[in-house]
Design a protein around this nucleic acid. Structure first.
Lengths: 188, 188
DNA sequence: AGAGTGATGTCATCAAGTGACATCACCGTA
DNA sequence: TACGGTGATGTCACTTGATGACATCACTCT
């Protein structure tokens, strides 16, 4: 199966992260990443759809685990609780190495097009979660709203967790943020 | 002030919308848009930062009106109600010609990079609203959550409004969606 | 009339991304 | 062992988005 040196896509991922950290996303050319990984620019585009995607292909795995957790949630759980379970599953994948997450976040926040790509990944997650909710029998209209709200909570929680002074579990921050949302919406 | 034919950016906007509708975003080249507008491709990039931005420069105005409404909301209003006021102000700008909104949405949904751009505009709105809330004295942590939640509500409401069979006011749909969110979060 | 100004055109160039085709290492099989 | 198939890679050519540098034109103000 492997020809040349195996593991080209891993090397490309590592090279990209290193170079994006060193000189920034825009200052890094695909040819540079490829060269550091020992391949050609053409090969880069065979592994990743574009220059941004090399940063985001873990998101598929995150989405899968979230959906699995959503399926696993008790059928009696209210929609937002099921969504919370899905988000916490995502948190387990992301949340164990905060330093890596912070490096990634630094690079992403420094560049608009990387932010755009991250947003569309979150939206993709939202769509998937909404579908999962509908499969659980949640009302069509409610599903979309619950999913979007959940992803909003996730986004806020992730930001708090990444920038926090203390070292907390991402799942805890998610639950705390959701509780705060419940307080917010209760206020009239 | 005007040389040649005045109103180049308006012509470019119209040309872009027409061509994106005709053949799609990717099949339309900047040179085509510029030609139809009677200018050069180089001039296109003097009016718009990139090929997508020609579709989104109304968003600055929407953001301004939203912020104004946020400032105008009674100081005693709870955060989410103030955000709702801001969203309804945005709705007034967008919500009066649903046909145009639907055409725009058709084009945007057909192309991933346009979706990305729309998402970052909504995020920009969220950040602005969060800042506005903080200026009103809302707690630092609450502000971000309320803004993100509000934008989530807006997104869901907009989608419902655009795809609805009947012709309803976007502001009404927003309030209805927010009420539904209150029900969702109340469930345990 | 002439200087100044701002929007535009022209030209050159870079970098992202893609299609077509050749090539090389490995694998199974006759 | 020799041979053909297969999949990942390299090479080359090309299109398109985007930008910098400089010239140009029309209009304004003095």
């Amino acid at each position: 199966m492997g020809r040349w040196e195996p593991g080209a896509s891993s090397r490309l991922r590592e090279a990209a992260l290193a170079l994006y950290l060193e000189r920034g996303f825009e200052q890094t050319m695909v040819a540079d990443i490829a060269e550091r990984a020992g391949v050609t620019a053409r090969t880069f585009f065979r592994h990743f759809a574009d220059k941004r995607e090399v940063f985001f292909d873990a998101s598929a795995e995150v989405e899968e685990k979230s959906l699995a957790a959503l399926e696993a949630a008790p059928a009696t759980a209210p929609p937002l609780d099921a969504v919370a379970a899905a988000l916490c599953a995502a948190a387990e994948v992301i949340g164990d190495n905060r330093d890596l997450a912070r490096m990634r976040q630094t690079v992403i926040m420094a560049n608009a097009s990387l932010r755009e790509r991250e947003l569309i990944k979150l939206t993709s997650m939202s769509v998937a979660v909404a579908d999962g909710l509908r499969r659980r029998g949640v009302d069509e209209a409610e599903a979309g709203l619950a999913a979007e709200t959940g992803v909003a909570v996730f986004r806020v929680a992730f930001e708090r967790w990444v920038n926090a002074a203390e070292d907390r579990a991402l799942g805890d921050v998610i639950h705390e943020t959701l509780a705060q949302l419940r307080t917010l919406t209760a206020a009239t």
